[in-house]
Amino acid sequence: MRGDAMDPRVGRLLEVHPHGLTTAHLHRAGVSDTVIRSQVAAGVLLRLRREVLVDRRVWEASPPWERHRLRALAVAGSLTSLGTEPGQVALSHRSGLVVQDLDVHGSDDEVHGSRVGCGRGHRSGGLWVHAPVPPGQVTDQDGIPVVRPALASLQEAVVHGAECGLVAADSALRVGAATPEELRSLVDLSCLRRDRPAARLVADLADGSRESAGESRTAWLLHLLDIEVECQVEIYGPAGWLVARSDFRIKGTNVLLEFDGRVKYDDRDVLMAEKVREDRLRELGYEVVRLTWADLATPGLVRAKIRQALARASLRRPA
């Protein structure tokens, strides 16, 4: 039904602008407001803002983080003030991060931008324009001005909390898009005054050795639980062979923590390899606590699991 309902001009424009259309794009192609409304009613287009539309089929097939990317790119295409000159707007916060293919946590239906150098912020119609950032903190991503990853990660912490900021900052460090020194040097910028303690905390905790958003969220939970850990610890057997590389080890103990983001194991060989690995670690005197996405939402359960593992470890001989 959708294929039959699509206006050929709209189909062609969606090929040219896969991340979204504006009413200006459509009007330039001779598509009237009446046709636009009919395409929305037929389920061909989805209106994100008054003047911003996307392919509904692509939108509905996309996970939340990809939807934010589509929304950000579509809205960016509608902004006449988008650029790197003073007073113009660059994508920032979570919107700047997803456009640069960096990890984010949580959902947000607003597109975030920041003034460049000067100008006032505003918030309306799904677009939140924030306080100015220094021009030197703006870069180009496929023709779209975006705030650089280090500052965008701290902005994310300021608006969405330190956990979200840590996921983003770890991602940026992991791929070499930021450095720890850069994060620390930006904390005192005026654009972060809304919640500077959150930005400072992210700059202190960010660690590029964590390998996924799940590990970053695990590190955040361990911080809240006041549990000190070492990251990416290599465990060797008596003969000097590497047995495993563990996500976390509680300092001063033989308790290892592993984040497992897989909902289930479809591959039996992978499942068996994991079992053999954990059995070998236990033979060496280690206790292994495996955490899942669901566990991260229940801090009390995680604390209990860790306490039980610490109790078991105390009864073992040192490895």
Rank of each mutant, 00 (worst) to 15 (best):
Y265F: 15
R307K: 14
V288M: 05
V147D: 08
R280G: 03
A239G: 09
P180M: 04
L315C: 09
G176I: 07
A239W: 11
H112P: 02
S124K: 15
A169N: 02
A150V: 04
L48N: 04
Y265G: 09
H27D: 05
L257Y: 05
A199L: 06
R290S: 11
Q141I: 00
E60F: 03
R47N: 07
E211L: 04
C164W: 02
S92T: 04
I36L: 12
S153T: 01
G176D: 12
D266P: 00
Q232D: 05
G125I: 05
Q155N: 08
V263T: 15
R94P: 00
I306T: 01
C118P: 00
L97D: 09
E274I: 00
G240A: 02
P8Q: 13
A177L: 02
A213Y: 02
E228S: 14
D267Y: 10
A177M: 03
A244L: 12
L256M: 07
C191H: 07
Q39V: 11
A206C: 10
P299C: 08
D204K: 13
L14D: 04
L301S: 14
G300S: 11
R9S: 08
G252T: 05
H105I: 05
A172E: 06
A309N: 06
G3T: 15
G126N: 07
S62C: 12
V276M: 12
R217V: 05
W59D: 10
G96Y: 09
S92E: 03
R317D: 13
A172I: 01
I36M: 12
V263I: 15
G125E: 15
P64D: 13
V116L: 02
S114I: 04
E66F: 03
E215Y: 03
A304I: 00
L26H: 09
A203K: 06
D55S: 12
W293P: 11
L46K: 15
H68N: 11
L151W: 01
K305I: 02
V10K: 10
R12Y: 07
G143R: 11
P86E: 10
A177K: 03
G117M: 07
C164D: 14
G20Q: 05
R120N: 11
P63S: 04
C191S: 14
S246W: 03
R115W: 04
A29G: 06
E258N: 04
V159S: 10
D170R: 00
L21T: 12
K305H: 13
D103L: 08
E234H: 15
E15G: 13
A150Y: 07
P135Q: 07
L13Y: 10
G285Q: 08
